[in-house]
Write a protein that binds this DNA or RNA. Structure first.
Lengths: 132, 132
DNA sequence: TTAATTGCAAACATTTTGCAGGTTC
DNA sequence: GAACCTGCAAAATGTTTGCAATTAA
């Protein structure tokens, strides 16, 4: 994945912050909040502001190179993996992990309202530590 | 559904605010944010504060009589229907509607990590107005 | 009577915005 | 050099909290 090329195709400028944030984001499969990405960037010696982190994540999402995951209604997580898959969310630990699509059989799409089209399907299996 | 009884069973007090908010919430199947519920309450002449609306919705969720729906990472919606079902979310209009479970075939549960148990499954089909 | 609940305002957390200065093409 | 981007601080949301006054049991 060439972030430079993706930005150019979109008519967006190739700035050092965008390249640096992309390098961190796509270094491995992960789920990062804006805050967490900012921390990783600062730790890596990348000088970047909060506003730019938010702007950049929104830009990446619009470009379709990250996927937003809403799991707790509080903060947005950005998933560096965009191939179709589901999520496992541990409500006790806050841990968010991927679930291959074949782990759940989701066969057919429902009939959608007139004049609408599907954008995507988000499936989150919520788990917790076993009690008792 | 007897809200009075549910509160008593939980050892929570039966207050006029809780009863009034429950009456509005469960008057029909709907998806309400805290803000929207507060507006409906005020319109209905119920004197209630923002803090109490939030407290009450959290209480109802803990009692399992409403279901939280996280759809946009910004605000939490509370669903007055708790029988298993999925959701259709129109990203253009913000409209959130129910989808019967049989509209999508979700056959088997994935293997869960050791020591965890499923709390629930949230499936949201995101749609938009058709383009072009 | 007492323990829980309410309301208010202030605190909090996350995300967005306005604008001056800096950078990319 | 023109348009875009960044950083900062302030604003905008949505939600929670602290505490005095009120209410249910």
């Amino acid at each position: 994945m060439n972030i430079q090329q993706i930005l150019e195709e979109r008519g967006a400028k190739v700035t050092s912050q965008r390249v640096a944030l992309a390098r961190i984001m796509f270094s491995r499969p992960q789920h990062l909040s804006a805050d967490a990405l900012m921390d990783l960037a600062l730790q890596a010696g990348v000088r970047v502001s909060k506003a730019t982190v938010y702007n950049t994540l929104n830009l990446f999402a619009e470009c379709g190179i990250v996927r937003e995951v809403n799991v707790d209604g509080k903060k947005i997580y950005y998933d560096s993996t965009i191939t179709p898959h589901h999520h496992l969310y541990n409500v006790d630990t806050g841990e968010l992990t991927d679930l291959p699509t074949d782990a759940v059989s989701l066969t057919d799409m429902p009939k959608l309202p007139e004049g609408t089209e599907a954008v995507g399907v988000d499936l989150i299996v919520k788990i917790r530590e076993r009690r008792g």
